[in-house]
Design a protein around this nucleic acid. Sequence first.
DNA 1: GTGGTCTAGACCACT
DNA 2: GTGGTCTAGACCACC
Lengths: 142, 142, 142, 142
Amino acid sequence: MIQINYQDKRPIYEQVVERFRQLIVKGVLSEDDKIPSVRNLAIDLSINPNTIQKAYQELERLGFIYTVKGRGNFVCGRDRWMEDETTEVLQQLKTCVHELISLGMQGDGIVDTVRTEVKKCANGKDDAAAAGDYNRKGSDAT
Amino acid sequence: MIQINYQDKRPIYEQVVERFRQLIVKGVLSEDDKIPSVRNLAIDLSINPNTIQKAYQELERLGFIYTVKGRGNFVCGRDRWMEDETTEVLQQLKTCVHELISLGMQGDGIVDTVRTEVKKCANGKDDAAAAGDYNRKGSDAT
Amino acid sequence: MIQINYQDKRPIYEQVVERFRQLIVKGVLSEDDKIPSVRNLAIDLSINPNTIQKAYQELERLGFIYTVKGRGNFVCGRDRWMEDETTEVLQQLKTCVHELISLGMQGDGIVDTVRTEVKKCANGKDDAAAAGDYNRKGSDAT
Amino acid sequence: MIQINYQDKRPIYEQVVERFRQLIVKGVLSEDDKIPSVRNLAIDLSINPNTIQKAYQELERLGFIYTVKGRGNFVCGRDRWMEDETTEVLQQLKTCVHELISLGMQGDGIVDTVRTEVKKCANGKDDAAAAGDYNRKGSDAT
DNA sequence: GTGGTCTAGACCACT
DNA sequence: GTGGTCTAGACCACC
């Protein structure tokens, strides 16, 4: 379910956060689903429990999961994060558009690309999203 | 020309790189223009020359500038970086689209947002790009 | 009568204690009223009897209830806890006032806010108190 | 400047956060003042640097300080936190009022107490605030 | 068993 | 020297 990439320069805990964020946003994990315990996931990934702990706390802060002491961690409902996520991603989208214009790309070309991408999602139901996301700024190998 | 923000979580050298990247991509600095010497810029910004040095090395690695020993640093032509930059940003764009779909946004709405953004650039000739870029993933001003 | 919120960061037994405290302070439960047995309440809430047991012990320690072996748990009279509770809350009130002054709020504004709040209680006869209390320091619902 | 109380049941890092919060809100520490380095404070208090680290990260998250890698931690301007703090403390204030009403205290008495407290601040310029705060809910000795 | 906190000690990136 | 991350191992409170 989760896998970490040691060639990625981002800290491990951030990779874990990002991965769960994806799984939750894309609906693979639904409201009130239980996610692996701190210890179990730490063993699975062969990393220290503290690192997972940090990731889970961040996820909680972001409103993606809630924690019940002595029971485990569970995913929150969409209402807790959908709005924030949408505005953030929209902001990213706009920034990309600006940059592409600066890079000399035609406005029409950008709109077309987006339209094509939207259609691709409508058909394939979003198979490229997971892989695509690993190519984001910040994940450059060291 | 360059200014650094100590409340920005990114390292200073990265801010310098990013700023020059913008100036070059947006055409404020043109091919073969000379950029400030390491020493001068360091004095201007009241920071350590090593930091500037590191930034310039990174800019050279990315193909934005070239160094002539004893003479200074100069801006490279668009051909050196345009393609790479474009494909990278396009990838980001697609990822954003996928995520917005997952977040439940309508495809039409996304296309409209992009079209609006394109127009905004066409009019203002891109005055928002600089500010926009500071909102990228990772810049998290405290 | 009692309900627990798993998204609340406080331990369950503390939520139970707090809820009974409210019911008793507000007079919903009167002196010598019998409260549910440990077993029954545990079944009602689908939680471990040990947790209820711990809550009742705490309530007894605080002087809100007394236990009669073999018969059950009963509410104490106001004289057992009113004074302590009042001085504690008064202290909290004063601290808040000091902080608001430090934060630059005008003394008049503070007094006005309090007067308004007092009136609100007088009318609604305190329907807001229950909800209000869940916003205390430490309850941080996720 | 900072001192921790091992009899307090709150975690150490939280005590550190709370103490700095006070110092900053009350104006003892002003905008852009440098606070002790993670390591130095850890040595001073004879506790582990990680614990201080956690406290500082929390303070940053709350908008009280900002961090510059390689340089240290500095306090933010009032604009970063004043509004949030005020609304939070106001909420606490209202809750206290509700509880006091429930406890049978007269509305007039509450208003009078507040008025008196406000005056005390105006004269003594707030000498009781620091001590008072240590008596808050949650700091009960174990 | 579960999460939360803490210690001790280490390495890295940045200035 | 400064903060940021990670490991290993421990103890506690809660369920």
